[in-house]
Computed example of a mutant assay.
Amino acid sequence: MTIIDCAGNRIDLKRPRIMGILNVTPDSFSDGGDFISRDVALARARTMVDEGADFLDIGGESTRPGAQAVSEQEELDRVIPVIEAIASEIPVPISVDTSKAAVMRHAVAAGAGLINDVMALRDEGALAVARELDVPVCLMHMQGLPRTMQHDPQYRDVVAEVMAFLRSRVDACLAEGIARNKLLLDPGFGFGKSLLHNLTLLRHLDRFSELQLPLLVGISRKSMIGAVLDDAPVDQRLFGGLACAVMAVERGAAIIRTHDVKPTVDAVRMSHAVISVEA
């Protein structure tokens, strides 16, 4: 599969694409509180598209380690006005970052064309609603829940176990009647994984090609970068994040999810140019 249709916005994945992150939350680990206002969020969306974002990923509930859950209504109040505003003005596919079936339904009605679910459609009603909405869905691996996922994550073989989980969720989607060409996969960097687990996943990311579905990778500004770079704070993790983005593209990632759109666009384009040269 090289083309995904996000509610009429068709994106060719023959070259790697960039998904810009727009969190309309007060407590996300990097940009919490920065884009709560509808107008500020819309301005940020315009900037990211100008910088080269192919998708915009809108989230209304933080999934950082230790994050507390928010109510369905609160999440709707955060994301729906922003999705409506962006969809009315910007012709770029909108992804809604949610695990709640009702938020999925309302977000797609408001203009979202892709569901990005850290729970991989395991919440009540999510599978059925995803089938009904008939938009692409990104299934992510997470061990545990955001509140507890980093307490002491354990794997015997992190790559094999993450792949097995994603296979099982693909099978669940197919059994529900969701078309295979609607699915994308995310190994879930930082979601119930130690530094070694994260580094191992990135080192062996090419193995995920066995699943024969587009791979979305989100490492931007995450703690794994800070841990390697002498406890670098969030605002000093750009260059480490660019290195991870390049390695992910070299290992087959189709979409890079990032806070830092323009630098990532340049790094990914350069990497793809080299990869594309015929031997």
Rank of each mutant, 00 (worst) to 15 (best):
S220V: 02
L238S: 04
S71A: 11
V92Q: 03
G33K: 07
D152W: 02
L201W: 00
R180W: 05
F29L: 11
T148G: 06
D230Q: 14
Q154I: 01
P263E: 01
V82C: 02
G111L: 03
G190W: 02
V82K: 03
E132T: 09
N9M: 06
G33N: 09
D39F: 14
P16V: 07
L195W: 07
T47I: 14
I18S: 08
D57Q: 11
R78D: 10
G190A: 04
I219S: 05
G59E: 09
D97M: 04
A112K: 04
R44T: 05
F55Y: 13
H106M: 10
R15S: 12
A279I: 01
A164H: 09
G190Y: 00
Q73M: 10
L202K: 04
D123E: 15
I86G: 05
V265F: 08
A245N: 12
S99K: 11
I255L: 14
E161S: 09
G8R: 02
L114S: 00
A102S: 13
L56H: 07
D27Y: 07
G111W: 00
A53P: 03
Q68P: 07
D57A: 11
A179W: 05
R64N: 08
H259S: 11
L76G: 04
Y155G: 05
M247C: 14
A267N: 14
F35G: 01
A102K: 13
K193L: 04
K193G: 06
M140D: 01
L22N: 07
G60S: 08
E75H: 01
A172W: 03
A69R: 13
H106Y: 09
T264S: 11
M140T: 03
I178H: 08
S71H: 00
S276E: 14
A232V: 02
V79S: 08
H259N: 10
S194N: 08
